[in-house]
């Protein structure tokens, strides 16, 4: 009888091959995970104010980058690569605003921060390209001005010599002409 009771007790403790103690710890673990995820959401959820701030920062970053790239383009810098990055960041900012409009502040914040990250350093790169382009412009201007000056100087000298020769020829031709004598009436 005792042996049968012991066996039954053992059977109750083992459910589906898992001892009762293990089963309890699994339940506790699951509950802990659920609560943790709930608290995680509560702790790390982005509220509207944070998203707003991220959007403003991203907007300012994008605008300052745009101004730098535009200035670089104006002086003739090849900013194609920077422009591609700027376009991508622009799409991210639009996505951030769109997510904000539908109330998805997590996504809005994430997109806005991604936008700020993407444009980081572009303004300084653009400034570098602008300086390079200005330098290249100055060099080109100097080279063409030098060639033009040399050409003009040569033209001045040749034209003076040419004028002397042409003048001499002109007078020679005039003096060499036979005077026509009109018939006396």
């Amino acid at each position: 009888m005792k042996l049968e009771h012991d066996l039954r007790l053992q059977l109750v403790r083992v459910i589906g091959g898992v001892p009762m103690v293990k089963c309890k710890s699994v339940v506790c673990f699951v509950v802990f995970i659920l609560m943790f995820s709930w608290f995680m959401d509560a702790c790390f959820a982005v509220d509207k104010a944070v998203a707003d701030e991220a959007l403003i920062d991203a907007e300012n970053d994008l605008v300052s980058t745009y101004v730098a790239v535009e200035e670089a383009e104006q002086v003739g810098a090849n900013a194609s690569e920077l422009l591609a990055k700027l376009k991508f960041a622009g799409n991210l900012l639009a996505d951030a605003y769109n997510a904000h409009r539908v109330g998805d502040y997590d996504k809005a914040c994430s997109y806005a921060m991604n936008c700020s990250d993407r444009v980081k350093g572009i303004a300084s790169e653009a400034a570098g390209l602008e300086l390079e382009a200005e330098k290249a412009y100055s060099e080109r201007l100097f080279a063409t001005a030098a060639v033009s000056s040399a050409g003009l100087s040569l033209l001045l000298v040749l034209s003076l010599f040419g004028w002397r020769i042409l003048k001499r020829r002109y007078f020679k031709r005039i003096l060499g002409m036979k005077p026509e004598v009109g018939k006396a009436e």
């Binding site: 412009y137 080109r140 201007l141 063409t144 001005a145 060639v147 033009s148 050409g151 003009l152 033209l155 034209s159």
Partner: peptide
């Protein structure tokens, strides 16, 4: 003629400026 020729020589610089 000289002035015209001068302008032609100067044109690359003018195009840059």
């Amino acid at each position: 003629s000289c002035v015209g020729l001068g302008l032609i020589i100067l044109s690359p610089t003018l195009a840059v400026v």
